[in-house]
Simulated scan of single mutants.
Amino acid sequence: MPIDAPTYVVRSADRHLYKALKLGQLCYILNSRQMGKSSLRVQIMKKLQAEGFVCSAIDISVIGNFQITLEQWYAGFAYLLVSGFNLLDKVNIRTWWRERELLSPVQRLSEFINEVLLTAITEKIIIFIDEIDSVLDLQFDSTAFFSIIRTCYNKRADSSDYQRLNFVLLGVATPSQLIQDKNRTPFNVGQAIQLKGFQVHEAQPLLQGLTKRVSNPQTLLKEVIGWTGGQPFLTQKVCKLICSSESPIPTNEEAVYVEELVRSHIIENWESLDQPEHLRTIRDWILNGKQRTVELLKLYQQILHQGQVVAVDSPEETELLMSGLVVKQGDYLQVNNRIYELVFDERWIEKYI
Rank of each mutant, 00 (worst) to 15 (best):
N154F: 05
F140T: 06
D133W: 02
A173P: 12
T174D: 01
F140E: 10
L165F: 01
E131M: 09
I129R: 11
V168M: 10
Q163F: 02
C152D: 14
S142G: 06
A173L: 04
R184N: 13
D133I: 08
N188K: 14
V172A: 07
L169A: 06
D130F: 10
K182M: 13
D181L: 02
I126M: 04
P175A: 07
R164G: 01
Q163L: 08
F140L: 02
C152I: 02
S134W: 04
F128N: 08
F167Q: 03
C152Y: 10
L165Q: 07
I149V: 08
I127N: 12
F140R: 07
E123V: 04
P186Y: 00
D161T: 12
N154Y: 08
E123A: 12
K155D: 01
N183K: 14
D137M: 14
S142P: 15
S134L: 00
V172D: 01
R184Q: 12
D141P: 12
F146T: 12
Y153K: 11
Q180D: 08
Y162K: 09
S176E: 15
N166K: 11
T185I: 03
T122W: 07
V172P: 03
Q180H: 09
S160G: 12
I132D: 02
S159C: 00
F145E: 01
I126W: 01
G171Q: 00
N154M: 14
A144G: 06
F146K: 06
L178G: 01
Q139F: 07
S159Y: 05
L138F: 03
